[in-house]
Structure formats: structure tokens, C-alpha cells
Computed example of a mutant assay.
Amino acid sequence: MRAIYLCLVVVLSIPLFTTAKGIETAKQVEQNLWVMGMPTNADIERFAEQGGDIVVSLLSVSEQSQTAESTWVTHHGMAFYHIAIPGAEGLTFAKVRLLDKVLLEHKEKNVLVHCASGNRVGALFALRAAWLDGKDKEVALKIGRERGLTSLEKTVSEMIAQ
């Protein structure tokens, strides 16, 4: 009796990062946009190897000074932007506009935006959705949550309502 083996090859589209752990690993939220908490050197290297172009850090100045991230990013041939958001007090219209400017200037490139946990990332994106894109509060907060907004949600909600 002869056995016949059928080999099926499936080609999958593999994302730049897995999304199984949410913001602990980069999460793709738009065609060219990924968000996450604090990346490691390995995360930065993987992002570069898989087509990453820009890394935007929202860490505070003191947090940023404790990492070699800008060196890691530029070593791998990517551009690095630092928009310091030290917490709720860093959530300003000027910072939202600055992030928006970076994203618009590089809209055709693969961009990773991060902070330590993803909370500030989500906060800035929620404010951007409300203040710059004219989204209503609930839609803006949903966008923020999808990008990591957690403990800053009450603050962001109040800022949008003003």
C-alpha cells in the first residue's frame, strides 16, 4: 500500500510585531503606525529589520536619559524623535500638534510611537483625535484606549470636554 502525502504551503502575512501581549509588544493600529510601551533594544532592532523608519519616544526627559534608545534607533538606520510627556502635565495642545506634525511629515513611513506603558501614547492620540481631527469625545477616547490609554483616561476625558 502506498501512502500519498499532500504538502500544503500557506503563505502568511506576518506583522512587524505580534499583538498577543497588547502594548508590551508593538501593536499595529494603522497601516504605517505601531504603538507600545517601553521597547527593548531587541524590539528596536526587529522594527528596523522589518521595515521600521521612525521611532517616537514620549518618555519624560528623566526616563529618556536612563536609556540608550536614541543610540539603538540611529544605529539601526532609523530616525528618532523625542516628545517628552512627563505625565498628565505634559498633555498639552503643543505636544499634540508636535506629534501630529511628525506623523504627517512621515505618513508614508513606518512609525513606532511609545512611552513606558502605552498610557501616554493613548492619551496623546485621544487628544489628537478630539482636538485636531474633530472626533467626538467617545470616539476619541476609544481611539486612545486602542493605543494604550488607561489611567489617564479621566484626565483626557476632562481635557476633551473643556
Rank of each mutant, 00 (worst) to 15 (best):
M1G: 14
C7W: 02
V9R: 14
V9W: 02
V10T: 14
V10Q: 13
S13M: 11
S13R: 14
S13V: 14
I14M: 12
I14W: 02
P15V: 08
T18N: 09
A20H: 08
G22A: 11
I23E: 03
T25I: 10
A26I: 05
Q28W: 00
E30I: 03
Q31Y: 09
Q31P: 10
N32R: 14
W34L: 15
M36C: 15
M38I: 12
P39D: 04
T40M: 08
N41P: 09
N41V: 10
A42R: 10
D43A: 14
I44T: 10
R46M: 12
F47S: 11
F47V: 13
F47Q: 11
A48L: 05
A48W: 00
E49Y: 01
E49M: 11
Q50R: 14
I54S: 02
V56P: 07
V56I: 15
L59V: 07
S60W: 00
V61I: 12
Q64A: 15
Q66V: 11
Q66Y: 06
A68Y: 00
E69P: 01
S70Y: 01
T71I: 09
W72L: 12
V73D: 01
V73R: 03
T74Y: 00
T74I: 06
H75Y: 06
H76T: 08
F80I: 07
Y81C: 07
H82D: 06
H82K: 06
A84H: 08
A84I: 07
I85L: 09
I85Q: 04
P86S: 10
G87S: 13
G87D: 13
A88P: 11
E89D: 13
E89K: 15
G90I: 10
L91F: 04
T92L: 06
T92I: 03
F93H: 14
F93I: 14
A94V: 05
A94I: 02
K95I: 03
R97E: 11
L98G: 03
L99C: 07
L99K: 07
D100Q: 14
L104W: 00
E108Y: 03
K109F: 02
N110I: 12
N110M: 15
V113A: 04
V113T: 12
G118T: 09
R120K: 12
R120I: 06
G122R: 01
G122P: 01
L124K: 07
A126Y: 00
A126G: 09
L132V: 08
D133I: 04
D133H: 10
D136V: 02
K137I: 13
E138D: 11
V139D: 13
K142G: 12
I143T: 15
G144F: 01
G144E: 04
R145L: 03
R145F: 00
L149W: 01
S151D: 08
S151I: 11
S151R: 13
T155M: 02
T155E: 04
T155L: 02
E158C: 09
M159D: 03
M159C: 05
I160N: 08
A161P: 02
